[in-house]
């Protein structure tokens, strides 16, 4: 099989590391060679963050570069625009419609662009928009946005639902397992 390339992009603090951990664990259990590349340190402090997940028979590079991503899961709308150039022509973008103002917007030196998703769609990008924050709040915590978005990704994969649930149980702290399973269920059926 060809290597499948996934990018998880968002804002530091949104929980993308847990999402990639979940995905990595699941894919290893499925028998794939897997590489996950993440960023620690300064950029985590509210900055733009990106995590790469690649799986297949044999994976070399831990990175995904321009025109290579089969899936981009954007935890925030503006980040979808920032990383769009990494998407393959027939790739798919899952976008949380939540907006988080970056500092240049907050202090008024830049504007939060409007019509991001419409523009991407007009350029032929497969955009799957979802209000993951509302769903996460329904599940019990804004922190489960990451699991809601993983559930959305799960719809495009052939991996059985139960295996995703098992991976959640193996990844999150036991006291948050129920809430996250609920978030997955709501995200999957949304």
């Amino acid at each position: 099989m060809k290597t499948v390339n996934i990018m998880i992009v968002g804002v530091g603090g949104q929980g993308s590391l847990l999402a990639s951990k979940l995905l990595g664990r699941l894919l290893v259990d499925e028998g794939y060679d897997v590489k996950v590349s993440e960023v620690h340190g300064m950029s985590q402090r509210g900055g733009s963050v990106v995590t790469y997940v690649r799986f297949g028979e044999k994976v070399y590079s831990p990175l995904v570069t321009a025109g290579e991503a089969d899936y981009i899961i954007s935890f925030e709308k503006l980040e979808a625009a920032r990383w769009a150039e990494c998407l393959k022509a027939d790739g798919r973008m899952i976008v949380n419609t939540q907006e988080i103002d970056p500092m240049p917007v907050i202090i008024g030196s830049a504007e939060y662009p409007s019509g991001i998703l419409e523009e991407l769609k007009a350029k032929g990008v497969n955009v799957d928009a979802i209000d993951a924050l509302s769903i996460a709040l329904k599940a019990g915590s804004a922190k489960s946005v990451n699991i809601v978005l993983m559930a959305r990704l799960a719809k495009y994969f052939d991996i059985p639902y139960e295996k995703w649930i098992a991976a959640i149980e193996n990844t999150v702290a036991p006291k948050f397992a129920e809430m996250n399973k609920k978030a997955f269920e709501l995200g999957f059926n949304a």
Binding site: G46, A84, M103, I116, E119
Partner: peptide
């Protein structure tokens, strides 16, 4: 994307 995304520094 046509418009440059504003930077999101830490």
């Amino acid at each position: 994307a046509d418009s440059a995304a504003p930077a999101r520094p830490p």
